[in-house]
Write a protein that binds this DNA or RNA. Structure first.
Lengths: 153, 153
DNA sequence: TATTGTTATACTCTATAACTATA
DNA sequence: TATAGTTATAGAGTATAACAATA
């Protein structure tokens, strides 16, 4: 199927080219607020714990798409900054229980707002139709990734 | 305009959530081929030089969306690995002239193929209509970013 | 034995700051 | 003075490998 293959390749190329552009936008914006000082993975970690309070380190690793070792260091940094808590699970003593602190909730709220505002700024002026098409494409991508993008090692 | 604002926020959220998922997919795939051993920024640097032979370090920084200092170290690594050359510009002696080596061309070719194949694999099975909509959304995003996503410091 | 999690090590990415050289 | 580029320093992200503790 040549037509379909061409589209797949076009998509792949578009993805490789588009993603880094947005990442730098968000990174730059987060960095511009020294009070927050959250990296994108850190922000995602906080989002995960907001949505899945009490999650484990393994769950975090899976969500972030990194190894457990990497998740462990990310978690450690957030614990030291007192944005999350890490306690033992009495039932399953190998497991840790992760939760946002009050400060974590606040920083997450602020960072999300800032990142979204910056992205929204970049999107400002686009017609509703274009916004809809952009969002539609992204949602389709998400559905693909959530079902198939498990870590492959 | 409430409707439009809602879409902008949805888009922003979709972007923040979708991008890292794809990045890890590509990163993991590139990493899985030790012969290549190219990071995503390195791959993008090679792509840039393929399309803009003789480019300067400043041009590279702008393309990658990083500071000149960062671009300089990235360039240095690629020079040491003999994937690119960095020579003086006789006309403008502050400037450097960057080009792919033969090895750089080969690695770029291989890495692009591998990355695209992995992404294509993730997209496999999507209907032509969905692929078209995904691609359309990404192209719209690119056009926004290329015109407005200059580095802000 | 399998799973959860941590630590040690090593790279890369990235920025800011300070610097040199050229225009 | 302004621009092109480098280097030093620092911190984060990431992996692999080796390990401890628990199931």
């Amino acid at each position: 199927m040549l037509i379909s293959e061409t589209s797949v390749e076009q998509c792949a190329g578009s993805i490789v080219e588009t993603l880094p552009l947005f990442l730098r936008l968000i990174r730059a914006e987060l960095r511009r607020h020294p009070r927050l000082n959250l990296s994108l993975p850190q922000l995602r970690a906080l989002v995960y714990l907001r949505d899945q309070p009490g999650a484990s380190a393994s769950g975090m690793a899976e969500y972030l798409g990194v190894t457990r070792a990497t998740a462990s260091t990310t978690i450690e940094r957030l614990v030291q900054r007192e944005l999350i808590t890490r306690t033992d699970d009495p039932q399953e003593r190998r497991r840790v229980v992760l939760n946002l602190t009050e400060a974590g909730h606040r920083q997450l709220e602020q960072a999300s707002t800032i990142a979204q505002e910056r992205v929204a700024e970049a999107l400002a002026g686009l017609s509703p139709s274009r916004l809809r098409r952009i969002n539609e494409g992204l949602l389709l991508l998400q559905s693909v990734l959530h079902t198939r993008a498990g870590i492959t090692r």
